[in-house]
Design a protein around this nucleic acid. Structure first.
Lengths: 160, 160
DNA sequence: TTCACTGCAAACGCTTTGCATATGG
DNA sequence: CCATATGCAAAGCGTTTGCAGTGAA
């Protein structure tokens, strides 16, 4: 991961902490560092493992507490898909949308610059927007073909 | 709630059940009926209460099971905001977006026809879209003013 | 008649909480 | 110094699971 991104993220966190009268503890920066070492979606457990490979152990309580801080600053986004919680660093990969297959549950990412700029540029009433999360629901390509085959079979049966 | 919407929803469910070799049990239709009697976001518990006022009691297992069916047909959408799960009937109020305040957690709805038509019309690669969910994150108006006051105080202090 | 569905209660696992200890400012 | 954070372990609670009984097809 690009270190300049990491240091930018650390600065954002530091400013936020000072601004809100919170402490700049080593745990918080170590967690942020690990978060920005992860690729794509990750669970708390996976994050914890990443931290241990860096020889930095933190308690679950601290992990949860810190992730909530990172969420508040939007250095991290949280997803809850099929009752599974995953996190994602926001600076990496920037704003992107997710496609979720309602049949098999597969999640894929879509980069849609057009949408991003439209949505980020939106002026909302009585609301100061800082970001967004967008999920598309539907059928992934392999589930589509499954359904087509199923349908074809059914029609063949009817025409017998 | 408009009964024609309820009966349309019931038809969608019935078709889905037949299509997938599932049974048309009274519980499933009673649950759907209650779902479409709710206003806005609701929890499973609130849904359960609504059902009891209709003198129809179902077990939690059945409630969860059925809500998953309704989610699969997209007769219902599930939100998980601040670790709280809420459901919402999709036919009522159609497609709309949510504004979530990252400071106080307040959730408000936005009707943005423009966005809806843009997003629904989007052709996604290797994906057959059937709907979407969009969340805007930022500061609600009252939290904005709070921050402004805080900032003003701070500046006044510095200029002393 | 059969197999999917329901109800019940127990199990599960993620998240929160309380308290003693440690530490940043 | 003291208010905030951390670690640990226990508690909490929404969701899932297993199994026996029920009922739709």
């Amino acid at each position: 991961m690009d270190d300049s991104i990491k240091s930018k993220a650390a600065k954002i966190l530091a400013d936020f902490l000072v601004e809100n009268g919170k402490r700049k503890t080593p745990e918080r920066f170590a967690i942020l560092n690990s978060v920005y070492s992860m690729r794509g979606h990750f669970s708390l457990e996976e994050l914890s493992e990443e931290m241990e490979t860096n020889n930095f152990r933190v308690s679950k309580a601290t992990l949860y507490n810190t992730m909530n801080l990172l969420l508040a600053v939007r250095l991290v986004v949280k997803h809850n898909i099929d009752n599974v919680t995953k996190y994602e660093a926001t600076f990496i990969n920037g704003n992107h949308c997710h496609q979720i297959c309602t049949n098999c549950g597969k999640v894929t990412e879509v980069n849609t610059m057009a949408i991003t700029t439209t949505l980020m540029g939106m002026k909302l009433k009585r609301f100061h927007q800082e970001g967004f999360t967008l999920y598309f629901y539907g059928l992934c390509s392999s589930c589509q073909t499954k359904f087509k085959r199923k349908l074809a079979k059914k029609l063949a049966k009817q025409n017998k």
